[in-house]
């Protein structure tokens, strides 16, 4: 599947009566990798969940390749090409690794599981293990690989490195870099480890208190060290 463009206009969403993200607007070009940055609790995860259709949509629009998808349920958005890897990973703990991956194939032949094992060789070694028996890093690989098997044209990755050992982080980011380099998938990446995110991203959007407060290229972000201090409360090199 070819990479999709994403267009978000005046998005307002939340949970129940509570509005979390407000008037967010940005565009992502096909094949682009965008890092979504911001402090904890600023609405990054809610933004991702809203794009995936898991929150209450209050207003605004979301378009994938210019086709509006904000009225569609989660399953239809996934069918339209959106792949979502949540912060909670959400693997199926009582299914084996192979079965977890199989569910993500969306009708493609079982032989295509090899793609997942090629991306994350560690999963091949663990294919007979239950999802619940995997380490946090392996669960993250499984969740990511399962979503990628569905050939998403837009991949939403929510804090894939959270709580992982450095060696696993390297492995995951290397796989993500390979994926981004192919240009076959547009990626929206929420990540607290800014330096790692900037290694693969070519564009940055910054969220504060549910609103988009800055967007620009990674070069612009790096060129202005005050941005990281202002919006993340950290040094630019973190």
């Amino acid at each position: 599947m070819k990479a999709s463009s994403l267009s978000v206009r005046d998005l307002v969403a939340g949970y129940g009566p509570t509005i979390i993200v407000e008037d967010i607007a940005f565009d992502v070009a096909p094949g682009q990798c965008v890092a979504v940055l911001g402090r904890n609790g600023m609405g990054k995860t809610t933004l991702m969940a809203s794009l995936a259709g898991l929150t209450r949509h209050v207003g605004g629009s979301i378009a994938l390749d210019d086709a509006p998808i904000h009225t569609l349920p989660t399953s239809e958005r996934a069918r339209a090409g959106m792949g979502y890897v949540p912060q909670t990973r959400d693997i199926f703990p009582t299914l084996t690794v192979a079965e977890n991956l199989f569910v993500g194939l969306k009708g493609r032949p079982a032989a295509d599981l090899a793609e997942a094992y090629e991306l994350f060789p560690r999963l091949a070694e663990r294919r007979g293990n239950l999802g619940g028996q995997l380490s946090g890093g392996e669960q993250q690989m499984l969740s990511t690989a399962r979503t990628l098997l569905g050939k998403p044209s837009l991949l939403l990755l929510d804090e894939p490195l959270e709580g992982l050992a450095p060696v696993i982080c390297q492995e995951l980011m290397a796989a993500l870099a390979r994926l981004v380099a192919t240009g076959e998938t547009t990626v929206l990446l929420v990540e607290q480890r800014v330096a790692s995110a900037l290694e693969v991203a070519d564009h940055v959007i910054c969220i504060e208190r549910g609103s988009l407060v800055w967007q620009g290229s990674c070069t612009e972000w790096r060129a202005d060290p005050t941005l990281a201090e202002r919006y993340l409360g950290v040094s630019a090199l973190t």
Binding site: A52, L54, P73, T74, S75, A78, R79, Y84, P86, D90, I91, F92, P93, T94, L95, E99, N100, F102, V103, G104, K106, R146, T147, G150
Partner: peptide, 19 residues
């Protein structure tokens, strides 16, 4: 497998494009 996944997380199944 899909049904067993449904038991554990209907939301996750929906995210994988299945109603």
């Amino acid at each position: 497998m899909l049904c067993r996944g449904l038991r554990q997380s209907p939301v996750r199944v929906a995210s994988l494009g299945q109603r």
